[in-house]
Amino acid sequence: MAETLVLVALGIALLAGMLATVQLVRGPDAATRAVALDAITLITLPMMVGLALVVGRSIYIDVALVYAILSFLGVVAFARYLDRGI
């Protein structure tokens, strides 16, 4: 039962990721693309944790931890670049 729920959650997260990807490819200007990339990062994080649950190894969560901490820096760098130059 819990396994099925995790798989369903992975499927829903993947669907949300597809919608954000469509916006990333389509977006006319760079700011839209930066926000879409941030959204995709925040969606891929629970996918990595869900994968750790499905496979059953807790070491996979370290990778999600690294991404969670470092994704903020990329978005800040983009925001400063788009505003007035990095």
Binding site: T41, M48, I59, Y60, V66, Y67, L70, G74, A77, F78
Partner: peptide, 29 residues
């Protein structure tokens, strides 16, 4: 980012963490 998830799916957490540490902030900046 998606390559890092695929590395994790294929059972290589060290490679996935390297891709995460370098591709998330450093390469972009």
């Amino acid at each position: 980012l998606v390559a890092s998830y695929l590395f994790l799916r294929m059972g290589a957490p060290d490679v996935a963490m390297t891709e995460a540490a370098i591709g998330a902030a450093l390469t972009t900046v």
